[in-house]
C-alpha cells in the first residue's frame, strides 16, 4: 500500500500538494488524532491536573487562591460531615454492588433460558438504564414520599403488615437504604444484559461435558459458568464500582445529602461545598480524595483486560 501511495503522484500528476499532504502518513495520523486528543487534553487531562492543584489551594468562586499545602485535607479529616460521606460512599458502593451483581447475575441466568418474547423482555429490562437517572430518581422520590408513598400504602392498607407509613427519607438509616435500593434498581439492567452477553458466549458443549461427568446444577454453575464468565464479570464489576463510587445524580435528586447531611456521598459533598458553597479548593480536595479508590479500580480493570481480552475476540494484537 505504501508503494501505491508513492506511485500515484507520478501516474496522476494533476493532484495538488494538499491531496498529497493528506495522504502523507505522519501528517494524516496527526490530523486524525488532533480533534479527539485535543478535546481530551483540554477538557479532561488539564482539568484533572488543575483539580489536583486546586485541592492544595484555598480558591473560592471569583477569587484565585494561594497554595496552602495539605490544609484542606487536614480540615476535612476533622470534619464529621466528610468522614460520614466517606463511610456512606463505601457502604453505598459495597452494598449496592453486591445487590446489583447478585440480582443481575440471577436475572441474566433467568434470561439465558429459552423464553417466549425474549428480545422484547430484554428490551423492557433495559429501560431503567436508558431513561435519564435524574428523572427516574424523581419517580423514586415520589415513591418514597412520607405521606403518599405507594410502598407504604401497600404495606399498611393492602397487606396490613405495618401500622404506620414508612418514613423513607426522614431519618439517616432508612434514607441510606432507600438510596441503595434505588441504585440497585438502576444498576440491575446493565449488569444483567452484560452478563447475559457473556453467558451466551459459553459453548453448550461445556455443559454437556460437565453433565456427562455427573456434575449437578450447582457444580455446573460453579465450575463452568463462573470461570467462563470471569473476564466479563471483572470488567463489568470495575465499571460498576467506578460509577457507583462516584455517583452523584441519584443522591442529589432524592435527598440532596439530607437529612442533616447524613446521606452525602463524596461527590455530592464536593458539589455542595464547591459550587453552591463557593469553596472550590475544598470541593476539589474532596474530589481528589476519591482518586486513590478510582486508581485501584482502574488497575484492577487493566489487569483483567490484559489477561483476557474478551471484548476484541482472540485476534487481539
Amino acid at each position: 500500500m505504501t508503494i501505491a501511495a508513492e506511485a500515484r503522484p507520478t501516474t496522476q500528476p494533476e493532484q495538488s500538494w494538499l491531496v498529497r499532504l493528506f495522504d502523507y502518513k505522519p501528517f494524516l495520523i496527526f490530523i486524525c488524532l488532533l480533534p479527539a486528543l485535543g478535546l481530551l487534553l483540554v477538557f479532561l487531562s488539564y482539568p484533572l491536573g488543575l483539580g489536583i492543584w486546586l485541592a492544595f489551594t484555598d480558591t473560592r468562586i471569583g477569587r484565585s487562591g494561594i497554595f496552602i499545602g495539605f490544609e484542606n485535607f487536614e480540615s476535612l479529616w476533622h470534619d464529621p460531615v466528610f468522614i460520614t460521606s466517606v463511610w456512606n460512599t463505601l457502604l453505598y458502593t459495597g452494598v449496592a454492588t453486591v445487590g446489583k451483581f447478585g440480582l443481575g447475575l440471577w436475572l441474566a441466568l433467568l434470561l439465558n433460558n429459552h423464553l417466549p418474547f425474549k428480545s422484547l423482555l430484554r428490551a423492557l429490562i433495559l429501560v431503567p438504564w436508558i431513561v435519564p437517572t435524574v428523572l427516574s430518581a424523581i419517580a423514586f422520590w415520589w415513591i418514597y414520599d412520607p405521606q403518599f408513598s405507594i410502598i407504604s400504602y401497600v404495606l399498611v392498607d393492602v397487606l396490613g403488615w405495618r401500622d404506620t407509613y414508612v418514613d423513607f427519607l426522614g431519618s439517616p438509616w432508612p434514607a441510606r437504604w432507600s438510596l441503595i435500593a434505588a441504585n440497585v434498581w438502576r444498576g440491575i439492567p446493565f449488569v444483567a444484559i452484560s452478563l447475559l452477553a457473556g453467558l451466551q458466549t459459553i459453548s453448550p458443549a461445556l455443559y454437556e461435558a460437565a453433565m456427562l461427568d455427573g456434575a449437578n446444577a450447582w457444580q455446573r454453575f460453579r465450575h463452568v459458568t463462573l470461570p467462563m464468565l470471569m473476564p466479563i464479570l471483572a470488567i463489568v464489576l470495575t465499571f460498576s464500582v467506578l460509577f457507583t463510587f462516584t455517583d452523584f445524580q441519584l443522591v442529589y435528586a432524592i435527598t440532596r445529602g439530607g437529612p442533616i447531611n447524613s446521606t452525602h456521598l463524596m461527590a455530592t459533598l464536593a458539589f455542595q461545598r464547591g459550587i453552591p458553597g463557593g469553596q472550590l479548593g475544598e470541593g476539589a480536595a474532596i474530589a481528589v480524595a476519591m482518586i486513590p479508590f478510582l486508581v485501584m479500580a482502574t488497575l484492577f480493570s487493566y489487569f483483567a483486560l490484559a489477561r483476557r481480552k474478551w471484548q476484541q475476540g482472540e485476534d487481539n494484537d
Partner: peptide, 17 residues
C-alpha cells in the same frame, strides 16, 4: 483510561476552566 475518569471529579476544575 480517559473513559475511567468520572465527571464527578472533573466538574469543579472544569467549572473554573
Amino acid at each position: 483510561l480517559a473513559y475511567l475518569v468520572p465527571p464527578s471529579i472533573l466538574f469543579i476544575p472544569l467549572a473554573t476552566l
